[in-house]
Design a protein around this nucleic acid. Structure first.
Lengths: 140, 140
DNA sequence: GGGTAGATTGAGAGTCGTTCCCGAGTGTCC
DNA sequence: GGACACTCGGGAACGACTCTCAATCTACCC
């Protein structure tokens, strides 16, 4: 790993990449690569599955999209706001709430400092039962 | 899903299940099903891969183990210890520090309450550069 | 506008984790 | 001890994802 190279992230805005970006923009929730691929095909955009995976991976790496694994183990993607945030997910229906919590950020930094770690990123995920699903479960 | 049956969770303590439980107990960290299967084989415990998956799934369902997906998308399992903790991992050398932070626990509960979620569990992972690796990188 | 180098694409085969199937084996209860 | 249901395990099947490589496209220079 050399420190000199200045990765320009010069991703060419090809037809395929634009289409994938658009698909993500118009989707409110997490979508699997296969979903995106299907939707594009259905909309008449002929894009290869490999390209969809490649593009999503590149976008995830550059922080343009969030990646999550659904309970089936499938990777799902969603365009994310630039602002760093976390997720609160319902384990029953999959509903997702975005959370921005400066409290965790502070905590993470404090812990990192305490142990001499620098340049720390963190992943936080809360999984629970949303009010609707809890009510449905109680009704049985 | 019927509400009448009272699944007794009467899992027979077979040799295989005991072996898997022991393997989980002796492992400090998240392990994939394949890891567990390999370890059991190596230790001379002949257990089928299908059995490992089945057992882990049953244990996850009954809340005995935590399930997580590692970046490769592989499901990993860990015995749900009473002492809940998180990890601070060095992205360069892989060194891991265990963290117990009641601050995050409180934060997680507060957030869950705020959004009407119940029965919330959370995963937190901090990834950074440990002091040694940071020094080594600066020396270049 | 034309030419060129290098990035990007896509079809399909390959890999890998996981689940399903079903005959054989084992534990439990009477 | 015997009957019966639960459990096991090997291997095939499945599905998500990655790799390969020739063809195509884009940015850039002249």
């Amino acid at each position: 790993m050399s420190a000199t190279e200045e990765r320009p992230t010069a991703l060419r805005p090809t037809r395929q990449r634009v289409a994938i970006t658009d698909a993500l923009r118009s989707a409110a929730d997490f979508q699997s690569a296969q979903d995106i691929h299907d939707n594009l095909r259905r909309a008449g955009d002929k894009v290869g599955l490999a390209t969809v995976y490649r593009t999503l991976q590149a976008m995830a790496e550059s922080g343009e999209v969030d990646v999550r694994h659904n309970p089936a183990g499938e990777a799902t993607y969603r365009r994310c706001s630039e602002a760093h945030h976390h997720h609160l997910v319902c384990r029953s229906c999959g509903r997702t709430v975005e959370i921005t919590g400066s409290a965790v950020e502070r905590w993470a930094h404090a812990i990192a400092d305490e142990h001499g770690f620098t340049d720390v990123t963190h992943t936080v995920e809360l999984v629970g039962l949303c009010a609707d699903c809890a009510a449905a479960a109680a009704r049985e």
